[in-house]
Design a protein around this nucleic acid. Structure first.
Lengths: 144, 144
DNA sequence: TGTGAATAGTTAACAAAGTTAAATAATTTC
DNA sequence: GAAATTATTTAACTTTGTTAACTATTCACA
């Protein structure tokens, strides 16, 4: 294998293992990484339906249904039936959920927050640009 | 949230969801992404023990034990007890395993292969450099 | 040189989180 | 107004991670 490619392979493998391990075992102030990511997503992007989350996170509707149930129990989100279309349940982050993401004291920040504070702005932009390109191609391939 | 940071957040979230979905559901010529990654790792880096794989992939020894069992059954790797230290079992990719990774016909390539063939060399190097920095900091934090 | 600690790996029991199939309720279409 | 579609949930199952406890081997050292 060519040198550049080999360096990339090693680094990407490391990164991927880290991402997976973090999703499997990561604890963000008492909730798992996936739950944390959902709360953070709703916080940053505003209310969304389960259907939207399913598409965003590439998981099935039943999987979302269970996640939502747990997040509701933990009072990190609330659910409101849409009056226009009563099949829809809008999910919205609560003050408690926001507080969790803001991570006031002694709390562990999300990976995104940590990365964006570790890289200088210019590098972060470069990284984002390339990563965007990668994601778009991978997604495109996936749809085929 | 600041604009650069928001762009990064969105992109990284997308990427992470893709990685996880791919690990959960990805099929690489009949085996799952984790199994594929292990075979590919052994191919690219040469024989290793279960212990090494556990550290590399950030998973427990029992999890490795089961993965190894399956990969042995599928004849993608072989296991050889070290004569120097009989507690050690060296895992080595077979010709069948190599063939799977090389992916001759109609086969789906690994994400690393796809990314490295999609990006021009200079961009791949840039991406690798930043990703390396990110991984190193994340790992360092993890150890604390 | 024998014994206790450490190391590599396995087995068993369990938990988290994904899946598909089938059910329910609401809406849209014609 | 009946049939099809859509959003969500429930049930049953699978995969893959975990910890605890076990075996086999090696190391450390009195």
């Amino acid at each position: 294998m060519e040198k550049t490619q080999k360096a990339f392979f090693d680094t990407y493998t490391d990164f991927q293992c880290y991402v997976i391990a973090q999703v499997n075992n990561g604890d963000y102030n008492g909730i798992g990484a996936t739950h944390y990511n959902m709360v953070e997503y709703l916080y940053r992007n505003g209310p969304a339906t389960g259907k939207t989350l399913a598409q965003k996170f590439h998981i099935s509707a039943p999987a979302i249904s269970r996640h939502v149930k747990i997040l509701l129990e933990k009072k990190l989100i609330i659910q409101q039936q849409s009056p226009q279309d009563r099949r829809l349940f809008l999910l919205e982050v609560t003050a408690k959920g926001k507080h969790l993401v803001d991570g006031s004291e002694n709390q562990r920040h999300s990976v995104t927050t940590r990365i964006s504070s570790m890289l200088p702005k210019k590098e972060l932009e470069q990284f984002t640009r390339i990563l965007r390109k990668v994601v778009d191609v991978l997604k495109e391939e996936e749809e085929r």
